[in-house]
């Protein structure tokens, strides 16, 4: 859904459970803001028992003291029984705020949270903060980080990507969940927002073009299972390389054009990577 269409969204009235079928199955539970789930009539264990991460969204464009104190009570309640749950705070709707104001807001929220938790005797609670907005890529980046923490094979994936990069002259490689456009792993070189953005926009191009001409696929042909591959050449000598890994995942690499001159080598290494990945997820099951 494009950001502007969210204006028509109605307020959520019940807990909505959206199963996400991907390389790893998980469920997103969307809680109504109105709901007080610390109310004793709620089945606390049912809600938090199998939870991997709690994402708490704070509207940075609005008065946030009251929502913040609700967050604090929630963290304290969870800490007692389920200390393993990752707590992720999205300082949200930061579009329209100046960079300075964004950081001040985040700092203020962090400070208040830390103080409150200390006062209640919780000194070492890990809380992560993300500045997000639906009008740019920050929301995808934040979800990427949240999801990555929940993947047990993350270390292995990073290693495989590192090997792929160094063997093929690739500068940066991302493993993307195609539907959500969050990346579930990347090699260990630092992520800059620009590279992530262009890769994520690349997926849009591929998905959209594939949809438009997808009618040419003959469902009876074996061809239908061929994995898509794509290359984009940029004027500045960089090349984007994409390979569909399976129904859910795509590998996107950034490299200089010299590296793609040996495309056979890149293709081969990507194939090796793909096979290794298959094994990782099979073992994980």
């Amino acid at each position: 859904m494009p950001p502007t269409e969210t204006l028509f969204l109605e307020s959520t009235t019940r807990i909505q459970k959206d199963p996400i079928h991907s390389f790893m199955d998980f469920q997103v539970w969307d809680f109504p803001g109105q709901l007080n789930f610390l109310d004793p009539t709620f089945d606390f264990d049912h809600i938090f028992g199998e939870l991997g991460a709690l994402i708490w969204v704070i509207d940075a464009q609005d008065e946030y003291l009251e929502p913040l104190s609700k967050l604090h009570t929630t963290i304290i309640a969870i800490q007692r029984f389920y200390p393993a749950i990752n707590i992720e705070v999205f300082v949200h709707k930061v579009d329209g705020l100046s960079d300075e104001y964004k950081l001040d807001t985040q700092r203020d929220i962090m400070q208040r949270t830390q103080d409150e938790l200390s006062d209640n005797g919780f000194d070492n609670v890990q809380v992560s903060y993300h500045l997000t907005s639906i009008y740019d890529h920050s929301i995808f980046e934040a979800f990427s980080k949240v999801i990555q923490k929940l993947i047990p094979q993350l270390g292995t994936l990073e290693n495989l990507l590192n090997i792929l990069c160094s063997n093929s002259g690739i500068e940066k490689a991302f493993l993307f969940d195609v539907l959500s456009k969050i990346y579930i792993a990347t090699d260990s070189s630092p992520v800059d927002m620009q590279s992530y953005e262009i890769c994520s926009d690349y997926i849009d191009v591929i998905v959209d073009v594939s949809e438009i001409y997808g009618y040419l696929v003959d469902p009876l042909q074996e061809e239908a299972t061929v994995e898509a591959s794509s290359i984009i050449r940029l004027q500045n000598g960089m090349v984007l390389y994409l390979r569909e890994i399976n129904k859910y995942l795509a590998l996107i690499c950034l490299m200089r054009k010299d590296s793609i001159e040996k495309q056979g080598l890149v293709d081969f290494n990507v194939q090796v990577f793909q096979n290794a990945l298959q094994r990782v997820f099979e073992v994980g099951r």
Partner: peptide, 12 residues
């Protein structure tokens, strides 16, 4: 930058 060429090989 700008893109100069695009290629997609998909099923179909």
């Amino acid at each position: 930058s700008n893109f100069t060429a695009f290629e997609l090989r998909a099923a179909g």
